[in-house]
Design a protein around this nucleic acid. Structure first.
Lengths: 100, 100
DNA sequence: TTTTAATATTGCAATATTACGATTATAATA
DNA sequence: TATTATAATCGTAATATTGCAATATTAAAA
């Protein structure tokens, strides 16, 4: 019904469509190294809720690192990040304003 | 709980978080002038559904034109579009990858 | 091996989103 | 003014998202 590019862009936008996930990404980005186990305190949502949001971010490949057990290590997957950045950039810059 | 910038970015992302709305924006952009009254046929969703999606897009100010009655005229609000483009650009380019 | 400190998973309630049929509203036109 | 073609709104069902308490899992440390 829609092109796969349209579906993928919408799916990526969906991950960014919650302020907690924006905040999580920005917080991880600000950390030195990738130990970020105080997300629950920083964001102010319950631990299962944070875990759930992290999972949404993981599902589109935006996080890399170690994901099990104690001392986990999250960080942003640079390649995937730049891929999405490019997708949004193309979307925004290919729009025309030819009326009104 | 979150900054207003985070909330606004998430809200904008939410509008892009459905492939029908991506498709609608791209279709309107491709039109010459702003007569785009065949959206229902092009997208393939029922007329009330399209109207609902258009309303979501309107709500964040991405459309301008005449919105009532027959012969309506939709087109993309250039200023608002570039505002959102800039917000997404800043978000994507301010992320660091300092680990792993 | 038990404890501990952390994340993940489960279950569930509340809310939001999506889709569409039926209906209403609008404004041009016959 | 009645008709017509279009979009908006209403009502509602199905599905998805969000949030958290309770519980399970994990792996390091005592």
């Amino acid at each position: 019904m829609f092109t796969s590019r349209q579906n993928e862009l919408a799916q990526a936008a969906k991950v960014l469509a919650h302020p907690a996930r924006i905040a999580i990404l920005e917080y991880i980005s600000k950390q030195e190294g990738c130990i970020c186990n105080d997300l629950v305190d920083v964001i102010g949502l319950a631990q299962p809720t944070i875990s759930q949001h992290l999972n949404e971010i993981k599902k589109i490949g935006l996080l890399k690192g170690t994901f099990e057990g104690k001392n986990l290590c999250y960080c942003i997957n640079e390649e995937r990040w730049e891929e999405l950045q490019q997708s949004f950039h193309l979307f925004f810059s290919n729009i025309n304003y030819n009326c009104c």
